[in-house]
Design a protein around this nucleic acid. Structure first.
Lengths: 250, 250
DNA sequence: CTAGACCCTGACGTAACGTCAGGGTCAAGC
DNA sequence: GCTTGACCCTGACGTTACGTCAGGGTCTAG
C-alpha cells in the first residue's frame, strides 16, 4: 500500500506544500516514486511523519527534529516515551496558565491588580531541552532504560499478557486496600507498593525515589490517573500517597 | 511606577525585540516615553501584554490579536474567560495526543501497526475560531453573557462574599448527597442540581443544556474538578452525572 | 479524447521575530 | 568632569516554515 502526497496530506491534516518542504529539507522523503515522478509514501513514512508532527507540536524546530531523528541511537519507542513526558509537562503548563487566568479574573473582580512578577510567571517558554533532566529522572537513567527497551523488544504476546495480568493483580490489591480504608503507610499497603515497584523493575531499575516520582505522575497525568480512577475514585491519589510514604519510611 | 523595555522583557520573558516589534505593528506601545525617547510601560500596558501573550499562546496571529483587542466590545474579563475556555480545549487536545502516543506505543509493543486514519487523528490543528461556537455554547449567548458581566461589574465585595457563600452551600449539599450514596437522578439530588443552576442564573441565563455542558466541564477541566474533588473524591463526576440526569429527566 | 482533479518543480511572498550596525543615554566610579 | 559598561534608540537585512502562484505534465472517468 502506498499513498500519494495529497492522500498523506489529507490523512495527516497538513498541506501538500508542507510535505514538499519536508522532502526538500531532507526531513522526510517518500520511500519511492512512481514512473511519472509522483511521491509514493509507505507505512514507515507515515510513522516517521507522525513522529515529526509530535516533535513539531512540542515546539522543536525542523532542524532539531532532523538532528534527533538522525541520531544513530534514535529509537521510535524512546522517542514516543520522551514525547509523552514532554506532552505531560505541556499539559502541566497549560494547567498553570489556567490557574493564572483565574488569578487575573479574581484580581479583576476584587478590583485589585496582580503583582507584576506573578503576572507573567507562566510564560517562561517551554524549552524541551530544559526538561531533559526531568525526563531522565522520570524515565530513569537512559542507559538502564535502553536496556529495558532491548529486553522488551523480545517479548512475545504471551509475555505481554502475563505482564498485564501481573499489573492488574497489583492494581486490584491497591483497590482492595483502599476500599478497606487502610492508611497509605499501613504495612499491608506498603507490601503492595513494594510488589508494584518490583513489577516495574522487570523493565528498568526503579529506585524508591523514582517510584515516588511515578506515583506523583499517577495523579498529575490524566492518562495514568484514569487507569486507577476507573477502578475506584480517589485510588490514584491513594497510590501516589503510598509511594510517597514508602520513600519517607525508607 | 514605570518600566523600561528591558525590565518588561525580563518580567514577561520575551525579547526586547519582540516588544519593539509589537510597538512597530501597533499592537502594544508604551504609555509614555522618557525625555531621551526611552519607552516607559505602565501597569495597564503590562496587563495588555499579558492578554497579548495569552492570545499568542492560543495560536492567534498578531493581526487577529490586534483585531480582537481593538474591538469596541473588548472587555478584559470576557477575553480572560474566552482564553480560559480555549486553554481548557487545548488541555483536552494535549490529553488526546497523550492517548494517541500510548496507542502508538501499544501498537509497537504488540508488533502491529496503527490504522493510518487513527494515526493522525489528533493533529487537526486547533483553530480557535473553529471552537467559537463551542465557546459560545459553554459561556452562553454572548449578548446574555455580556449582560452578566455588566451586572457583576457593580458587585461590591460583600456581594461577592454572599455569592461565594451560596456556592459553598450548594457544593456542601452535593457532597452530602454524594456521601449518603444517593443516585445522581434521585429527586433530592435533582433538587440540588436545580438550586445550583439557579445560583448560576444570577450571572447569566443557564439552560439545562448549558448546565449539563458545565457539568461535563467539571470533570474535564482540572481547575474546576479540583474544587469538587477537594471536598470528596469522585464528587466532580457525581455532579456531572447529576446535571446530565437533569437534562435527561427534563 | 477531453475535462477536471491530481502531480511536478521552481520561485517569490509572508509572519514574527533574530541579529547586527551605528549611534545616543545613564549611573557608578575614579 | 570624564570614562566605562550596561542600557536605550532606529533602521535594515536574515531566518524559519511554510503559503501562494506560475507553467507544465499525468491520470481516470465519461
Amino acid at each position: 500500500m502506498a499513498w500519494t502526497v495529497g492522500e498523506v496530506a489529507r490523512l495527516a491534516k497538513v498541506s501538500v506544500r508542507t510535505l514538499h518542504h519536508y522532502d526538500a529539507v531532507g526531513l522526510l522523503g517518500p520511500s519511492g516514486r512512481s514512473d511519472a515522478g509522483y511521491r509514493l509514501y509507505e507505512m514507515t513514512d507515515l510513522e516517521r511523519l507522525q513522529q515529526v508532527l509530535f516533535f513539531r507540536e512540542l515546539g522543536f524546530s525542523l532542524d532539531e527534529i532532523r538532528a534527533v531523528m538522525a541520531d544513530s541511537a534514535f529509537d521510535r519507542g524512546d522517542a514516543l516515551r520522551a514525547q509523552r513526558a514532554l506532552l505531560a509537562e505541556k499539559a502541566r503548563r497549560t494547567g498553570a496558565m489556567l490557574t493564572k487566568i483565574d488569578e487575573a479574573l479574581a484580581a479583576m473582580e476584587g478590583g485589585t491588580t496582580m503583582d507584576e512578577n506573578d503576572m507573567f510567571e507562566v510564560f517562561g517558554d517551554f524549552d524541551p531541552k530544559q526538561y531533559e533532566d526531568e525526563v531522565k529522572q522520570r524515565w530513569g537513567d537512559t542507559e538502564a532504560y535502553r536496556e529495558s527497551a532491548r529486553r522488551t523488544k523480545a517479548f512475545t504476546k504471551d509475555d505481554w499478557k502475563r505482564v498485564k495480568a501481573e499489573q492488574e493483580a497489583v492494581m486490584d490489591a491497591f483497590a482492595e486496600a483502599f476500599r478497606a480504608g487502610l492508611a497509605p503507610d499501613d504495612p499491608k499497603v506498603q507490601e503492595v507498593v513494594e510488589r508494584h515497584r518490583l513489577s516495574i523493575e522487570r523493565f528498568y531499575t526503579c529506585s524508591k525515589e523514582m517510584h515516588a516520582n511515578l506515583g506523583r505522575m499517577y495523579v498529575e497525568d490524566p492518562r495514568f490517573a484514569k487507569n486507577y480512577e476507573d477502578r475506584a475514585e480517589g485510588l490514584a491519589r491513594f497510590v501516589c500517597d503510598a509511594t510517597q510514604a514508602a520513600l519517607r519510611l525508607a
